[in-house]
Design a protein around this nucleic acid. Structure first.
Ligand code: SF4
Ligand code: SF4
Lengths: 151, 151
DNA sequence: TCTAATAGGATCATTTCAGTCCGATTAATC
DNA sequence: GATTAATCGGACTGAAATGATCCTATTAGA
């Protein structure tokens, strides 16, 4: 019942890209250093993101990553599911064959409802919103600095 | 992002107990057979449920399990969390130390919201409701049988 | 051509999961 | 009291997922 590390890194990566959407291409190492993750691991994650059509990658010297769509067109859910697969709180939702009793199971419906709710929440947030909020938070923090360095 | 097998078994176990709440004590093997799970494994799960105060266990000959509270006082969430631990979609929610950027992280808040929503949904359903719905579904199905054996 | 970058397959250590085994313990019954 | 039927609970195991890292190939700018 938790997000994998790879999923978390994927989010950090695209969030960084969204926050620097004005720049064309951003190198893997820069992203990894800024968002605090292993650069090699990010490479793996990025490949999956590219396959899912969320980012595009340029190889070779001066290569790097960039968003394949506009930040306001990428939902958080899409990023997560590109890495960790579609969200299914309980297996029986995904694989009907995994349990015989689902035709009468009252719990099954709860899982279905919970899953819809969760995917809805994550699907309703775009990278554009997240990046904007993040920038605001950072700005707020630097403005605060003279008053309260301890934060 | 999924329920463990142990959690699923725990739910099945307490659901069975709730559906037979009129009987005093029910043997482990009977529950395991009826709800289709390994009896040994159920033993492990039951111990945790007992520690969490959800069921009580009687040892010795003619021993077995029973609900420690009324079905309407046991939420689905409690059963799940007794086995799999408190639900945290993302580690940073649980362990603040696991990520430095959470003070400014816009994604953090989304996880927090999603988690609250999920726990709310699962916390709002009691065993009494589930058992009642399950019984109704079974009754409905047996009434249907003469008409459509294929289901 | 040289060099700086990613691609992508192989590999590996650790942890989690799912489950089993088995001796110890408990309590009803003979 | 002995037998028997049940759970307790710790040790153990195999399989899979997770979280990486390593290394060679490929790509493309200078
Ligand atoms: S018992 Fe119900 S909730 Fe559990 S796996 Fe089967 S259908 Fe799903
Ligand atoms: S970056 Fe944000 S969401 Fe991710 S672990 Fe850190 S605080 Fe949590």
């Amino acid at each position: 019942m938790r997000l994998t590390r790879a999923g978390e890194y994927a989010i950090r990566c695209v969030l960084y890209l969204a926050m620097h959407h004005d720049r064309e291409l951003i190198g893997r190492k820069e992203i990894a250093a800024a968002m605090d993750m292993p650069a090699q691991f990010l490479g793996k994650v990025a490949q999956q993101l590219a396959k899912a059509g969320i980012i595009s990658i340029r190889q070779g010297s001066q290569g790097g990553y960039e968003l394949a769509k506009r930040p306001q067109d990428i939902a958080l859910l899409a990023v997560i599911e590109a890495i960790d697969g579609e969200i299914f709180l309980n297996d029986c939702i995904h694989r009907p064959h995994s349990c015989d009793r689902q035709t009468i199971c009252s719990v099954h419906q709860i899982w279905d409802k919970a899953r819809r709710q969760l995917r809805n929440t994550l699907g309703g947030v775009t990278l554009a919103e997240l990046a904007a909020r993040e920038k605001r938070a950072c700005a707020g923090r630097s403005r605060e600095q003279p008053h309260a360095l301890q934060g």
